[in-house]
Simulated scan of single mutants.
Amino acid sequence: MSAESGIPTFRGPATGLWAAFDPQKLATPEAFRRDPDTVWAWYEWRRRSVARAQPNAGHVALRALAALPHLEALAVVTQNVDDLHERAGSKDVLHLHGSLSAPRCEDCGLPFAGLEDPWLKSSHEGATRLAPPCCSCGARIRPGVVWFGEGLPEGVWLEALAQIEQADFLLVIGTSGLVYPAAGLADTARRHGVEVASLNPDASVLDQRSALDWQVTAATGLPALVAALQPEGNRDGLV
């Protein structure tokens, strides 16, 4: 979804985040306990890269899709940990894998509100780049993402299930379909009689089980979809 904003995909063979980094050294609770400062610095680098990126035409099209008068509602359930959906104007986005913008204390769980503190900025730019302490209990602040070996946030997961079970249509955008339990949401939809379509420039394990498989990027396909769904007379300039 965010590749056309310049954010590397999770599993791309050449540019994916794990093509250059070992996830076991950076994306597990054990890695953070072993070397919290390196893990924190890497996630801060990712967060600042996201902050410089802009929502692409696909993000904007999802917001426009939600505004169509003949759609009852549009829920956005994402595995992405960036905030580009929100910055494009989508509301109530469900982040299954957490968010780079929501670090929290590893012990008490208190959200960390100091990402723009001068101390953190200077430590990020300097050589130390230390994981900051919690202002409540003094434990370390950890990135607000779901790591390998961790469960999804229960409230978000249950809300995503409820949204999908009650839907009329599920559009799966730009996912490999390999990461569970999120990849199982399409099968959940089918069991509840929900039509499923896949929009992805690359082949996906979800393709063969989808009613529609459209091999196109989000920034190309979603604006075209919005244009096609516009009421007559409102379609000019949307493709």
Results as ranks from 00 to 15, higher is better:
Ser2Glu: 04
Ala3Gln: 13
Ser5Phe: 01
Ser5Trp: 00
Pro8Gly: 05
Thr9Asn: 07
Thr9Glu: 12
Thr9Gly: 15
Phe10Leu: 10
Arg11Ala: 10
Gly12Thr: 06
Pro13Thr: 08
Pro13Ile: 00
Ala14Met: 10
Leu17Met: 15
Ala19His: 14
Ala20Pro: 04
Ala20Leu: 13
Asp22Glu: 12
Gln24Arg: 13
Lys25Trp: 01
Lys25Arg: 15
Leu26His: 13
Leu26Arg: 15
Pro29Glu: 01
Pro29Gly: 09
Ala31Val: 05
Arg34Glu: 12
Arg34Trp: 11
Pro36Leu: 08
Asp37Ser: 03
Val39Ile: 07
Val39Ala: 00
Val39Trp: 09
Trp42Asn: 13
Glu44Cys: 03
Arg48Pro: 07
Arg48Ile: 02
Val50Gln: 07
Ala51Ile: 09
Ala51Pro: 09
Asn56Pro: 09
Val60Leu: 14
Leu62Trp: 02
Ala64Thr: 09
Glu72Ile: 12
Glu72Tyr: 07
Leu74Trp: 02
Val77Asp: 06
Thr78Trp: 02
Asn80Glu: 08
His85Ala: 03
Glu86Gly: 12
Arg87Pro: 06
Ala88Met: 09
Gly89Lys: 05
Ser90Val: 05
Val93Glu: 00
Leu94Ala: 07
His95Met: 08
His95Cys: 05
His95Ser: 01
Ala102Thr: 15
Arg104Ala: 11
Cys105Ile: 00
Glu106Ile: 11
Glu106Pro: 06
Asp107Ile: 08
Leu110Gly: 07
Leu110Asp: 13
Phe112Met: 04
Phe112Lys: 03
Glu116Pro: 01
Asp117Ser: 15
Trp119Met: 10
Lys121Phe: 00
Ser123Leu: 14
His124Ala: 11
Glu125Gln: 14
Gly126Met: 04
Ala127Gln: 14
Thr128Leu: 12
Thr128Ile: 04
Ala131His: 01
Ala131Asn: 09
Pro132Ser: 03
Pro133Phe: 05
Ser136Phe: 11
Ala139Asp: 13
Ala139His: 05
Arg142Cys: 07
Arg142Val: 06
Pro143Arg: 09
Val146Leu: 09
Val146Ile: 13
Val146Cys: 04
Gly149Ser: 10
Glu150Ser: 11
Glu150Ile: 09
Gly155Ala: 10
Trp157Ile: 06
Glu159Gln: 15
Glu159Leu: 13
Ala160Arg: 00
Ala162Arg: 15
Ala162Asn: 11
Gln163Trp: 08
Gln163Val: 08
Gln166Pro: 03
Phe169Arg: 09
Phe169Cys: 09
Leu170Glu: 01
Leu171Met: 13
Leu171Gly: 02
Gly177Ser: 01
Leu178Tyr: 01
Val179Arg: 06
Pro181Ser: 08
Pro181Phe: 03
Ala182Glu: 04
Ala183Asn: 00
Leu185Thr: 05
Thr188Ala: 14
Ala189Tyr: 10
Arg191Ala: 14
Arg191Cys: 10
Val196Ile: 01
Val196Asp: 05
Val196Met: 00
Ala197Ser: 12
Leu199Ile: 08
Asn200Tyr: 07
Asp202Leu: 12
Ala203His: 12
Ala203Thr: 15
Leu206Ala: 05
Leu206Met: 11
Ala211Pro: 03
Leu212Gln: 11
Asp213Met: 13
Val216Ser: 12
Ala218Pro: 06
Gly221Lys: 05
Gly221Trp: 01
Pro223Leu: 08
Val226Tyr: 03
Leu229Gln: 08
Asn234Arg: 15
Asp236Lys: 12
Leu238Glu: 07
